[in-house]
């Protein structure tokens, strides 16, 4: 294990303690926000109206034509992926015994996190609810009919 058990009463290394402290704090702050964000997400997408049945391209297009849901979904994307990746990092730290394997796994986790956060953010910002050439019956009702 990579964990070093310090001598009792040895002075605390403040620089190292701080990063883990902010990680600990982040889990609680983002967690509290995610309860609201994800319960709201589940209510509008899975409970209200026709639930899972109603979800298609037109549903997403309708939601993302409103900046409110764009901000909501972006906040969920960033907060949840970093929360989940940091949680996985904690688990990797707990259960790996070889330092190079632990490092490789933790780097992979943050790599996947960075790719998905970037991908998701680009998708939300460049999304077009009325793409040219698409079948009109698949698009939201507000799209101009050709």
């Amino acid at each position: 294990m990579s964990v070093v058990i310090e001598q009792p009463r040895s002075p605390r290394n403040r620089n190292q303690a701080n990063l883990e402290k902010y990680g600990w704090l982040y889990m609680r702050l983002s967690g509290a926000l995610l309860v609201i964000l994800i319960f709201g997400h589940l209510f509008t997408n899975l409970f209200a109206g026709e639930g899972i049945k109603a979800i298609d391209f037109a549903f997403v297009g309708g939601k993302w034509s409103d900046p409110f849901w764009k901000v909501w979904d972006l906040a969920m994307l960033w907060l949840a992926l970093i929360h989940g990746t940091n949680g996985m990092r904690t688990i990797v730290n707990d259960y790996t015994s070889k330092e190079n394997i632990r490092k490789a796994l933790v780097w992979s986790l943050w790599g996947i996190c960075a790719v998905l956060v970037t991908l998701g953010t680009l998708v939300v910002f460049t999304f077009d609810p009325c793409p040219a050439g698409a079948l009109p019956e698949l698009l939201p009702s507000f799209c101009p009919t050709a």
Partner: peptide
């Protein structure tokens, strides 16, 4: 966490085409 990875990828398909996402 593993669902979230899949869910970001499936939602990203709205950028590809309505048919792919549906």
């Amino acid at each position: 966490f593993f669902f979230l990875l899949v869910h970001v990828l499936d939602t990203a398909l709205v950028r590809l085409s309505p048919e792919a996402y549906n």
